[in-house]
Design a protein around this nucleic acid. Structure first.
Lengths: 111, 111
DNA sequence: TCCATAATTCCGCGATAGTCGAATCGTGTG
DNA sequence: CACACGATTCGACTATCGCGGAATTATGGA
């Protein structure tokens, strides 16, 4: 992953509403959620949420697909993994102290 | 790590100049670098860099210490590790596909 | 076709981020 | 003390972000 792309993803996640929307989508699984369901779950206005979903989508962290009259958003697992990998490989370039313990963290988080 | 703190760190890293400064500091090791050295390495104005270092410092990603007439900045490895751990634990809450492969990435990045 | 629903887009507003020039503070040295 | 140097702080400006109200597009059903 290149730096501009990583910056776009970090910037997209550095916002409470977007971070919560993304967390929701990760928990929702590959089928994702309709925009309206996300708006109801987070208590945000449809237009504001739409703008934030657009930013998440532009950064590559989520994908969207129309399903009937609603649009389902889903987290892009591979892209999120690439973002975390960027942080680890970028920071560990000479500093094993950072991501050494993270191997264990990764194993534990998936259990 | 709590969400507001994570957002502050992500926001601090979501900026080209700050990300490059942080990378430089990680490579520089625990002794860090003087602000002037960072400015020269990145080709940025001293005052602009100072503002960005302040943001990095406020987010907890770097520490500063006066050394003679210069001020040395150093990356806070533990804090950066906590940020990555936040992303993994936050995202893997139900999605092993993201951080499952990251255990291997962490091991490889430190080699 | 007409209507209801889901979601987006458009537009304007206030707030915030980023940058630069100039001035200031702190430290060591003659 | 006077001075040079490293770094920060201040002030102002521009650009962008974030939000909400209103209008618009798209789909499915009567």
């Amino acid at each position: 992953m290149e730096q501009p792309s990583a910056i776009a993803a970090l910037s997209a996640l550095a916002h409470q509403g977007r971070l919560e929307a993304f967390r929701l989508l990760v928990k929702a699984g590959p089928e994702g959620l309709a925009a309206g369901d996300i708006a109801r779950a987070l208590g945000s206005l449809p237009n504001t949420l739409s703008a934030n979903l657009n930013i998440l989508s532009a950064s590559g962290l989520v994908t969207s697909q129309r399903h009937g009259r609603s649009i389902r958003y889903a987290a892009d697992y591979a892209h999120m993994r690439a973002v975390i990998a960027f942080l680890m490989e970028d920071c560990c370039a000479g500093a094993a102290e950072i991501c050494g313990p993270l191997a264990e963290t990764a194993r534990r988080a998936c259990a």
